[in-house]
Structures are given as C-alpha cells and as structure tokens.
Design a binder for these strands. Structure first.
Lengths: 337, 337
DNA sequence: CGACAAAATGAAATCGATTTCACATATTAC
DNA sequence: GTAATATGTGAAATCGATTTCATTTTGTCG
C-alpha cells in the first residue's frame, strides 16, 4: 500500500541510500538530486516506516511516561512539561495511564524493555526501588518524578513534602488553630506518608498533642475527601481546621461543609496541596501549596534526554524543588472564638 | 546489550523459528521444547524487540489517540474508555496531546502514516474533513469522536449538541428565565456552534427575542468563563440565567458571581455541559448535561478494532448518543421576582 | 592539463524478529 | 508392517529502512 524507500529511489532515479541521506541529512547530497528526491517523496506521499527505521537505527526518539492516573490535573500538568520539552528536542511522548494499578504499571515497563521507547519516565511510581534498579542496571534509561531514588543512573525530581507540610500546619497554628484534621491520600503513597510526617513534626515542634482520631484517609479524590469529612462530623469531633493532602479532597471538604452548614473559613479553615486549576475558582478560594509541576516534568525529561544522548552519568541527578504556600480565602481569617 | 531471539534459540538448542512459535503460539510446539525455550527466555530476560516484530508482522497493536488537551476531564474520561476497551483487546494506546494547536494535531497524523500505530482515534479534531478523507482513502484506519464525518471508512460518535442545548434552554425557560446568557467555547469548535444553534432554536420556538449581546465567548475554560461574565457585568446587561457551553466555564461564572456578590441560583441560574467530576462538588451543585464520555471512547475503539481486524466496512458507522440533563441546585429554584 | 582531494552516490550488509517452505519424526489406519 | 497423515522443527527469505564501504564524479591547484 504505502510507498517504500525503494519506490522513491526508483522514481527519483537514485539509490535508496541517497533517499535516506536526503531525509536524515546524514551526509551531503547535491542540490539537484535533493530536489529530485524531494519531489519524488511528495508525489508518492512517502512516509518512512517507523518500524524499519527504529530497527536499523536502534532508536525510536520516543519517551514513555507512566502516570498513576490521567484524570488528575497534578499529573497532566507534569505531562505538559514533559511533552513540551521533549517536543523541543524532537522526541515524541507516549503517555500511559496505569489507572492506579500496580499491575498495569508493570506491564508498561515493557515499553522500555522491548525498545518501543528510548527512555521512560515514571511519575509517582508504585513499583519497588529494587525493580527500578534492575531496569537501570540493564542499561535502560529511566527517570522518576515524585520520589527519591538512590541509583546513579536514575535521575529523580520531587518536592520536600515534609517541609511544606510543616509550613502549612504552622500557617494554621498562627491562625489560632490547634485541632487540625489531616486528610491523607492513598495510605500506600509515599506522598501521604511524608505529608503526615510533616504534620506530626510541626505539631511536636509547637507542643501540640497529636490526636490520631483527626487523621482520616480520603484517597486523594473528591469522593474520598467528602466521605472522610462526613465520618469526622458524625463522630462529633472537635476541630477548627483541615489540612488536606491535595486539592481534590479539599473540594470534598467544601461539599461536606456545605451540607452540614459549616462556613469556610470562619468556622473551618481549609488548606490543600497542588494548586490545581480550580483552586482559585472555587468559593472561598482555596489556600494551597503550589508545586512546580510543569517544571518538574520539563526539567526531568531534559536530564533524561541528556543522559540518553551522552550515555553518561549526569553530574547532578537528584532535584529537590521548592514549593510555596499560597494563602487564599479558605484560611486567611484568624479563628473566631 | 539485550538478548536476541537467536541467543534464546542457542541457549535452548533450537532454531529462532521455534522460539517465535512458542512466543506467538502460531503453531504447535512440543511440550518439551516449549519448556526449554521458556526457561531460556527467563534466564536471559529476553524481551522481543518491538521494532523487529512490527516490521516483519506489519502491525504494532497500538492505537493512537489525539486529544485537543490532556488537561480537560472531558477528554480524559473519553481516553479512559478507549484505553480500557483497547486493553481488553490487547492493544496499547498512545495518547497524544495536541495542546489545541492544529499544527501539532497534523504532526501526530504521522503516527499512522509511518505505521507507528495500527489505527488512530481523533477526539474533537480541528482538521478539515477532506484531510480526514484523504487519510482514510489511503487505507489507514481512523475514527473520530465528537463530530460527524461522512465517509464510509471512518466510524464516528458524538452527541446531539443542538438537541440537548434546546433541553437546557427550555429548562431555564420553565424556571421563568427569559434573558439567558450563552457562554460559548472556542468559536472555531463545532461544539460551540451547534450548542449556540440549539440555544437559538429554543428561543425561537418559544418566541423569545434573541439578544446577541448576551452571547459571550469563554474559550471552554475557567479563566474565559470568568472574564466573559465580568464583561457582561460591566455592560450592566439584564439577565437572570447563564447557559455555559461547558462546566469549566461555569466555574468561572461562579467565581465572577462570588466577586460581584450575586447568589446562585436565586439571583442567577447556571447550567453547564459535560458533568465533569467536580460539578457535583462545587456549591451550589451545578446543573449540567451528562455526556456518555466513557462509553463514547469505549464504543468507538471497539468499532475501530473490528474494522482493523476484518478490514471491512462496518454495518453501522455513525453513532449519535443521548445525553441527559442533570438538574442540580444551580438552576432548580424558579426565578424570584 | 594532470594529480589529488573532496564531494556525491550506489551496492550490499545489517537491524531482529516472523513466516514460508521443506523436511524429519511421530502417529494413525488399514 | 507399510502407507498416509499429522505434528514438530529448521533453513532461509523477508519486512523497510540505515549504514558501511567502495566507487565515481566533481572541483581545486600547481
């Protein structure tokens, strides 16, 4: 069906080698033959077969990205950063949605093992360190966003969860809040754990007793956040603020408050994490922690590409980026007594 | 670096052909040799090279999906449907984010022309009909979500924008609203146009004069919706309801109202479109039109796969799905006079 | 103008799998 | 026990590009 390089060559009266040279600018070709080849390509509507090209050249100029969920703006923002930077370096990006299933995540590792992609970025992977090491040790290029990985060949980038969590809690303490709920995401996610750690450390530093009953799991989504809050309300616990480990859950908190008739921020202060698109559009506007999502993606893919091209160990491999507390209306009123 | 099929063959003491047969179950192999081959594969950690496989077999078992924007839940829900159904049929999905750039969309067409994918799904494409026809006529498998395409070889699926828009407007008219703002998306998008058409028809049917100054463009996102409303407020126009062509813009409407001190729904009724994740979490909960996003993706990819496997014209090619108006709190109070 | 370097081009090998075809071995039927 | 069939396996061709190496053509200079 499709025209092949040999057809182009015949039509232009040259050899396939020359056609290849015109297309890839791999050596000089005279202006005259270049033109003949180009018109032949145009007339035949020739598109080089990717498989043949990949097979011979042993590269694909594709980068795979595995994300836990494609329907989460935190991840899609990261993807945008990856895509744009990759595009600029002439790489295509294959996005893979693991749908929060470890099994699917594992399946997608095939992309790199079977050389469909030249490199692989795993965003907030659930896979164990050792598995990552194994892949890297075999010589494949992988990189990780969202957690620390201790391996020479694996660049990684993340933000300091503990640090910004302390900032959040201290912000609430300054507002006069002592009884602060912590809404956690998936218990298995490292982010959940580290954010809880920051919460605990801040309390300890300020000599506030930790009340375990104020920690609830909301699975990082609206439904979970809503249900977690409802559980807390039912237990009639005393609290005046909520630190939600992401913005989606905070939205669930808003809904729960609307239903039980609690006013934010006067009766309950709320702070989220991620600064997602809608956080400044909901009412009241949501205080949250801005993470440099786009930058994380862009920076890491850049490192990965460098590494692939030079096939060398990068001088700097671990990137811990700063995040920033954005105080909006959901937490900017000191507690009314 | 990687083990090749010949290495496996040598280790197992068989020919490459046999290894291939074991892996692809393309003909019977004795239990004994099968075991030898499998252990050799295990020991070597062999992964068949995708490029070689694709080249020889002339297929990739990959399906490309081009979406206008990956950071929009309407599209990601569609993707979920595509992915899951494709996965079930043993196809992998490559997601491509055109970032609302026609140029990028065009670039991604290369995926099918160069046979990186076996089939291509274009979601709400901006490309012209004729270009689509050309591709299909060359024998490539493509399918379209979100608009009607009149070509024997191109399956398509969409909802009836005109129809549900009438329903929305009639719902508002029943609530006593006569001065209804229409917030449009990108002017170039067919969805914008058809939704406006439904709005106009409903007004005409009910003998309500059309006031062009009540139509504003909000680009399908929060910022646009917010700015559009602010423009309307500044002009001090008289209106009591807003039909927003999607939920994201409706969120912008909410924000604008919060800032100027208008209460929804008592002072302004709002209806959106898409029923996105957050629409029932914001306050007041947003009336909206539910589109069968997941189903659209799943159904269409199924058709595409059928077509690819049978290489035949499908009996049914055009699917117009029903959508449903979900009345929530943002519009359920009759206008207070 | 002849010698030599540089530029342009082609023939053939190659990438790593699948697939065809032929052949060997095992099984069944009579 | 032999013929006929079914099953299992290997050698070699093949997919469509790139790349190496050799060769031809062009250009430069004394």
């Amino acid at each position: 069906m499709d025209a092949k390089i040999i057809d182009v060559a015949k039509k232009a009266g040259v050899s396939p080698a020359t056609v290849s040279r015109v297309l890839n600018q791999t050596s000089t070709v005279s202006e005259k033959t270049k033109n003949k080849v180009m018109t032949a390509i145009d007339e035949l509507g020739y598109h080089p077969n990717a498989a043949a090209k990949n097979l011979r050249s042993q590269k694909t100029r594709m980068i795979g990205v595995i994300v836990p969920d494609i329907n989460t703006s935190y991840f899609t923002e990261i993807i945008k950063g990856i895509e744009n930077m990759a595009y600029a370096s002439n790489y295509n990006v294959i996005i893979c949605d693991a749908e929060n299933q470890a099994e699917k995540e594992m399946e997608y590792l095939n992309l790199i093992m079977n050389r469909t992609v030249d490199g692989l970025i795993m965003v907030a992977p659930s896979i164990a360190d050792e598995q990552l090491f194994q892949i890297a040790d075999k010589g494949y290029f992988i990189a990780v966003i969202g957690r620390h990985v201790e391996h020479d060949r694996i660049p990684c980038i993340y933000t300091d969860n503990v640090k910004f969590s302390r900032t959040v809690v201290e912000h609430l303490l300054e507002g006069g809040h002592q009884d602060i709920v912590f809404l956690s995401g998936y218990p298995t996610a490292i982010d959940s754990y580290e954010r809880l750690e920051g919460y605990l450390k801040a309390l300890r530093d300020h000599h506030i007793p930790f009340r375990p009953e104020l920690v609830e799991n909301g699975n990082f989504n609206e439904v979970g956040g809503y249900e977690a809050m409802m559980r807390l309300f039912e237990k009639k616990l005393q609290f005046t603020a909520v630190y939600s480990a992401n913005d989606e859950m905070a939205l669930g908190v808003y809904r729960a408050c609307a239903e039980v008739g609690l006013t934010i921020p006067t009766q309950l202060a709320v702070v989220g994490v991620d600064n997602n698109r809608i956080s400044k559009y909901i009412t009241p506007t949501l205080s949250t922690v801005n993470q440099p999502k786009y930058t994380m993606g862009a920076l890491l893919v850049e490192k990965l590409i460098d590494q692939m091209n030079e096939d060398t160990y990068p001088e700097k491999r671990v990137f811990v980026l700063d995040s920033e507390l954005i105080i909006r209306n959901s937490s900017n009123v000191p507690m009314s007594k």
